[in-house]
Design a protein around this nucleic acid. Structure first.
Lengths: 336, 336
DNA sequence: CAGCGACAATGAACCGTTTCCACGTCTATT
DNA sequence: AATAGACGTGGAAACGGTTCATTGTCGCTG
């Protein structure tokens, strides 16, 4: 099976290779008639241009790199999947890489992608991104974990949390605990900010206790569990009647903690999570959570890289609103 | 910033481009002395060979495609992540694609990868793979869902299930229900086979009821739930005292069903899942499950594509053993 | 000591596109 | 009618590596 090249197409169509190339790239300066004739031959021969040759000359690889801390995290896997879809719609493909939240590995991956001549990178930075120097000259869009000094795309974490906390307030809760993310994580701090603002805004009795009910934890299940244990290990009339967790995994860990302590959900404790991962609708009972618009974020990131949307200016990032998804882990508080 | 090319390196090192190329590719016929000198210059200049140019001439892209039905499925996302790691160890990168279990999309993705000149493809076929023609001349390794007629790599589903069922038998269960996967799915049938064999092997009273306690379902959570409802909706002395589910998601759905019916786990019902996804250790109570060696599978698949391992001969696939992971959803049955 | 093979290194051809420039034709302008 | 510009196409250079045939050097052998 001799592989067919652009010259074969040109010969059979009786045109020059340049013309075939122009047809291939939808260059406007080709007669309609020629265009159809050439495309005909192309289909007939099943000709597919060699991407290496193409990219070597044109400096365009139609490849997008995406670097995330952990593909096992459902939030990121959904992000990757959505990005893949969006990219495919434009004839682009995705190279995935996992940094395992390890700065050195992350830098290495970015270097690899750079040398691969990808057309752009979607980056969810590791938590210690401070050491990270992004290469110039290559479009990079930072997603989810915004880096100060760089612009990016994320959901509006702080307002999202406020949404959830206000929901709890409206149900009548006063002692609302908060499981925060890692101290140095940007989105974690945004979420904490949302909580503190909502509590402050509520004023009165609520306000005073706000800051005493915050537990810091990693975003994972196990950390959520111990944070939950910490928050719930006090006298009944002092412990929170509701807990807002900064991630769904934390929330689920916290549910586990409550279960182990014999605290019924939602009768004696309301729980709200954050993220809206598929898992959140599979728990028993179903988790109330604040949902991030992952698909929108992914699509926007791809659009930016393909120059369909302007790159958000430095320090001026694009934020998408979150949405409250009511489950079965929330109810009005019991009287003390 | 003028980009440095191989000629620059050659000039500065006082050698020909051919020599630099051979240094780059660890070709043996270069003096040790020259090799070190050239590598020195390479590092000094920060030279990185252009992969397009490279692959155009050499026909090697150092790219591996991986096509899976759904990246949101934790089993597959872990598979991809493991494959990425294994590939990176060899200087290869991964292009991910999602088929959404849609045969046409799948064929299209494979075509895309072929035209991208990837060095190999890791494929988890969609469920209706019968219409699928794999391109010749491109190494493809089929993973997890083996295709009759093609060889591949997977875990030993049937023996894995047997492991779980035998565990239940040893606990004293007789009426063991089974939630099967989709009828046309190869691994689903392998798992069913494992169940039937284990039941048959148990003999006696157990044997007779075996086949009456099988419910067919998709692999997802919701299907597991309705299958659970179906199996449990009978008189107490007729309903199963244990259920083996063909996926963890099914198992969790089934837990939900039991919960809704007021059947305590594991007191009145033992449940065992299959897959060993991270989620399985987060349920309340923790799910007992049969764990697939995902990392081994991924590493083996990559090794095959890189010609480090022989391609398993047609019809003679490589199977990795599974492992039982004891959780809290299993116990001895209550007397009727 | 001549001849030969093995080995290192060179230099140019080559991979398959895109892109640039030149050329001929056709229309619009003066 | 002559000239300018616009337009469509052909032809060849260019992209940045790898590979292959070739040349030049050794060390060995007969």
């Amino acid at each position: 099976m001799p592989k067919v090249g652009i010259r074969d197409v040109a010969r059979l169509a009786g045109v020059s290779t340049g013309t075939v190339s122009r047809v291939l790239n939808d260059h406007p300066s080709v007669t309609q008639e020629l265009r159809t004739r050439v495309s005909g031959i192309i289909n007939e021969l099943g000709y597919m241009p060699d991407p290496s040759a193409r990219s070597m000359r044109s400096k365009v690889s139609r490849l997008i790199g995406i670097v995330i801390p952990d593909l096992t995290n459902p939030f990121f896997s959904e992000l990757v999947q959505s990005a893949e879809q969006a990219a495919a719609d434009h004839g682009y493909n995705i190279i995935v890489m996992t940094s395992f939240d390890h700065a050195a590995k992350e830098a290495d991956r970015i270097r690899q992608l750079t040398s691969r001549k990808v057309d752009g990178i979607i980056l969810v930075p590791s938590n210690d991104f401070h050491t990270l120097k992004l290469p110039k000259g290559l479009p990079i869009v930072v997603v989810d974990r915004l880096m100060p000094g760089y612009s990016g795309i994320a959901s509006d974490h702080s307002n999202g949390v406020r949404l959830g906390v206000e929901y709890l307030l409206k149900l009548g809760h006063c002692r609302i605990g908060f499981i925060s993310g890692p101290k140095h994580s940007v989105p974690a701090n945004d979420r904490l900010k949302g909580y503190l603002e909502a509590m402050e805004h509520a004023g009165g009795a609520v306000q005073k206790i706000g800051s005493t009910l915050v537990a810091e934890a990693a975003f994972d299940y196990e950390s959520g569990r111990s944070a939950g244990n910490y928050l719930l290990a006090r006298a009944r009339n002092e412990r929170p009647t509701a807990i807002f967790a900064s991630s769904d995994q934390q929330a689920i860990g916290c549910m586990r903690a409550a279960y182990d302590l014999g605290i019924p959900i939602p009768a004696a404790l309301s729980i709200v999570g954050f993220d809206g991962i598929p898992l959140s609708s599979m728990t028993i009972p179903r988790l109330t959570t604040v949902k991030q618009p992952i698909q929108k974020i992914a699509a926007a990131a791809v659009a930016v890289l393909l120059n369909e949307q302007p790159v958000p200016s430095i320090g001026n990032s694009t934020l998408f609103p979150c949405e409250l998804s009511e489950g079965e882990t929330t109810a009005a508080p019991q009287p003390d």
